[in-house]
Nucleic acid binder design. Sequence first.
RNA 1: GGGCGAGUAGCUCAACUGGAUAGAGCACCGGCCUUCUAAGCCGGGGGUUGCAGGUUCGAGACCUGCCUCGCCCA
Length: 669
Amino acid sequence: MYRTLQQGIQARVREVVQARYGVELGAIHVELPPKIELGEMAMPVAFELAKRLKKAPRAIAQELQAELAATEGVAAVEVAGAGYLNVKLDRAAAVKRMAADEHAAVGGPGFRLVEHTSINPNKAAHVGHLRNAILGDTFQRMLRPDGWKPGWDTGVQNYIDNTGVQVADIVVAMQHRLGLSVAGVREWMTEALESNQRVDYLCWDLYAQVSQWYEAEPAEAAARKQVRLDTLHAIETGGNASADIAEIVSTSVLRRHLQTMERLGVEYDFLPRESEILHLHFWETARQLMIERGVLYEETAGKNKGCWVMRRAQTDKAAEVPGAGEDAGPDEDAKIIVRSNGTVTYVGKDIAYHLWKFGLLGKDFGYAQFYKYASHMCWISTVDGEDPHPTFGKAAAIYNVIDSRQDDPQAQVKEALRGMGFTAEADRYTHLNYAFVGLTVRTAQELGYVLSEQDKGRAYIEVSGRKGFGVKADDLIDRMIAAAQKEVDARHPELAAGERETIAEAIGVGALRYFMLRFTRNTIIAFDYQDALAFDGETGPYAQYAAVRAANIFRRADVAETAALAQVRELHVQALLEGDEGTSVWEVWLTASRLSTVLEQAITAAEPAILAKYAFVLAQQFNNFYHRHHILTEADPARKTLLLATAAVARRELVRVLGWMGMAVPSAM
RNA sequence: GGGCGAGUAGCUCAACUGGAUAGAGCACCGGCCUUCUAAGCCGGGGGUUGCAGGUUCGAGACCUGCCUCGCCCA
C-alpha cells in the first residue's frame, strides 16, 4: 500500500517539477522520516533542484508544497528542516485501503533460476551450508508466485559436484582404507541405513581420517597423493569401480542432504550434476562457441605457452598503454581455461554450465525423477533421461548463492559471457554472495576442539571438513528443536504431545532460519550455540510470538480477522487515528503497509536480511500496541473494531513476511 | 606482490546506497503479571563511526593516504 502511494506521489512530483521548472528528474528518492510526527514520507528533492536552479532549497520546497497537497491519499505536505518535503498521509483512507488488502503487485515476466546449497556429496552438511541454503530458499520464496504476489516464474537448482576431489577422497577411503569393493560399499551403505545411522555422518569421519592419512607418513605422502589423483581421474572417466563407488556414495549422501534441508522447509526442483556435464560433453560445445566468439585462444609464447586462455576485457588502462594491443606479446595475466596438459579448469566447466543456464549452449541434460516432495517432484540430471520431463535452463535471470570466496571465479564466468557478446545475460547474472560462517571460540571448545593460543585470540574459528571441524546441520537443528521443546513443554502441559512437537519444530526451525537471515550477507557469522539458542529479543521466536498473540485475540473475540477488517472499512476512523493514542495505532498500520516496498527493496538488493529486520520491527510495533491497548475490554465499539482490525492487519503481514523467510507461525507459544 | 571485503556502544549487528538528534538486540540498572500469554512491555546509563586530510548545503557511507584483521589469486 505504501508502495502504491509512493508511486503516486513520485509521479506527481515529476509532473509538477516538469511543469514548473521544466526539469526532468531522475529517480525521486522517498524515505521514511525519522519520527512519525514529521509525516510518513520525506523527499529531499528540493536539495537536488537547488543545485540545478540555483535557488534556496527551502524556497523550492515551499513552491512545490502547495501543488502537491492535492495528491490522492495525501492529507498535507509540509516543509521541514533545510528543505525537506514531508508528506502526511490521509490515515483513514490508507487504513481502509489496507483493510481491503490493496497492495502493489510484485513480479514480472522471465524465468528466474535460483541455485543454492551445492554441497559436495561426500560428508554431512554443516552450519555454513545452512546459511547458503536458507539464504537461497528465502530468496526463492521472495520471487516465486504465491497467494499475495504474481511474482516470477522461478526454479530452484542445487548443483552437485559428484566427480570432484572431495568425493574422490571418500572413494579412496572406501577402496584403500576400508578395502571395499563396489559390492562391499553397497553392503556398507545398506548396513548403515538399516542400523539407522546417518550415512553422511559416517562419511564425515571417513573424510577427516583419509585427509589425515594422506599426510600421516612423509615417506608415503607422494604415493598416497598419487592414489588420490588416479582415483579422481577414474571417477571423471567413468565405467570403473571407483566411478561406481563415487556414484553410490554421492547419491546416498545427497539424499541425506535433501532430508536435512527438508527439515527446514528447503526444497529443490532440479539437481544438475557435474558427471552429466562431463559425459554430455558440455565443455566441448562451450569450447567451440568460445573459440568462434573469439574469447578463447591458444597461447603460443610466454609462461602460459600451450594453454588455452581467455581473452580479457579491454580495460581503459590497457587501452591507454601504447602497443598493448594484440601484437604486444602474450598476456601473462590471462585466465587459463585449459591447462597445457589438456585438463579443463573449474572455471571452464562453469562457463559451459552457465551457457546452459541461459539456454545458449544448444544442449540439454537428460532428466530423471529423484526425490518426491509433498507438492512436487525433484529431478536429477542423467545422460539419457525419462520422458516426459520438465526442462530447466533457458533462464532470463539467474541468482547463484555461493560464498564470497568464489567472487573471482564467478566474476570470470560473467566476464566470459560478456566477452562472448552475451552482455544482457551477464547483466542478469547475480552472484548472491555471502561471507562464511565460523565458530566462536566458546562453541569450538564446547565441541571439544583443542585450540592453539593464537586461535583463542581470534574472533572466530574456521570450519574445516578436512579436520572434521564444525557443527553438523542436523545436530544443530536437533538442538534448536530440543531447546524449543523444553520451553513448550513447560508452558503448555495441557496440549497433546503431538501438538507440542509440531510447535517446537516451528519454533526451533524459525529460530534457526531467522538467525541465519538477520545478518547482512557480507557479515561473517561467528556461530555460537548460546546466541543461536537465545529466544529473546531480535530472534525468530520473538516475531512468531507476536503473530501468535495476535491470533489469540481472535480466539477470544466474537469476530473473525476478516470480519474485523471488513467492518473497519465501514467506520469513520479518522478521529481515532489522531493524537497520541491514535498515532500509536496508526504506526502499526503504517509499518504493515510497507510490506511490498520492503520486499521489492530486498529483491533489488538481493538481501533477505531486510525482510528479517522488517519482521522484527513489525512484531515490535505490534507488541508495543498490544500492551498499550487492551482490545477485548475496549468499551467503545468503533474503537474496538479498529483495534481488532489493527491486530488482524499486523498478523496478516507478519505471516506473509515470515512465510517468505520459511518460518511458520505456531498454533500456540 | 595484486584483487576483494571488513573496522560503528562492553558484546553481536543495523543504518532505506549522500540526508534530519547514528539506531536495535544482548549484557547492566530501575519499574510492570487478579486485565487478550512476561519467549512480553516501559524507563535509564553507555558513541571522537580505526587514524589523517579532502569533496559539499550535508559524510558512518564518496575520494586520497596510512593502520589493523580476514579471504581469494600468483
